[in-house]
């Protein structure tokens, strides 16, 4: 097996100081290999969001090591982390976070704009990404004209438009109804299988986590369990079953 894409070694995260001190992560070890689909689960306050922020290079650990593609990234500066994010990471959020009054196309192009790509390159890549999420033909709709599920698809297109190594999805189905949730999970699964994108997903819904090949449970700042999912869900349940 090749070297892991992501390696966490004894990662700790401390918030506050003195009496208000809080250990959000109490020494985490975690290896994630390229091409994996990992669900991170746990109750609120268990440290899963903190871990996700550190994995996504949005935050730095207080202690321990983080190796991304074999390189130490735990003590990078703000701008160095931003450059790493724009090059290797894609983000999907619970609240979609699309720019209002901005077309799907422009929303998807946004990360490319920061990479300094030319207009023609941006347009082609955005069109391709929108097609990959099944929104070909919706390029010129603004978020207000799209359903929640469609908005999340645009957000996923925005995450994959840079062809990242990892997509980090933080409760991607949290704002969607069950059927849309399964559609989004099916999409993430396909991106993982067909395009080989590593997917890290935080969720607290067991039937969404069931799509992943591996489940990591956080409890009280520690990893309580880390086991493969022997039978990942491969297709959304039929809509008729959902109705019952």
């Amino acid at each position: 097996m090749s070297d892991p894409l992501i390696q966490l070694r004894g990662v700790t995260k401390k918030y506050g100081s003195g009496v208000a001190e809080l250990m959000a992560l109490k020494g985490i070890d975690l290896d994630i290999h390229a091409g994996e689909f990992v669900a991170i689960m746990g109750p609120s306050g268990s440290g899963k969001s903190t871990a996700m922020n550190i994995l996504g290079c949005l935050d730095t650990p207080t202690g321990g090591q983080y190796l991304f593609k074999g390189a130490h990234v735990e003590s990078l500066s703000r701008d160095q982390r931003a450059r790493l994010r724009r090059r290797f990471l894609g983000f999907v959020f619970q609240g979609f976070n699309l720019l209002a009054r901005t077309s799907a196309q422009e929303n998807v192009e946004l990360p490319l704009l920061y990479r300094g790509d030319s207009a023609s390159v941006r347009r082609a890549a955005a069109t391709k990404a929108l097609q990959a999420v099944g929104l070909g033909g919706w390029e010129h709709h603004t978020p207000a004209e799209l359903s929640g599920g469609q908005q999340q698809r645009v957000a996923i297109a925005r995450a994959i438009v840079t062809e990242p190594a990892v997509v980090l999805a933080d409760e991607p189905t949290g704002n969607l109804d069950t059927q849309r949730s399964h559609e989004i999970m099916g999409l993430l699964m396909r991106l993982n299988q067909d395009h080989g994108i590593t997917v890290l997903m935080v969720t607290h819904e067991a039937d969404m986590a069931a799509y992943a090949q591996r489940m990591v449970h956080f409890i009280d700042g520690c990893i309580a369990s880390d086991e493969p999912n022997p039978h990942p869900t491969t297709a959304a349940p039929a809509a008729t079953e959902e109705a019952t």
Partner: peptide, 16 residues
């Protein structure tokens, strides 16, 4: 604020 957060998350530098 959220828009700025998003821009920063997807890789906008502080100066940008």
């Amino acid at each position: 604020t959220r828009e700025i957060g998003l821009r920063l998350a997807i890789g906008a530098l502080e100066n940008e």
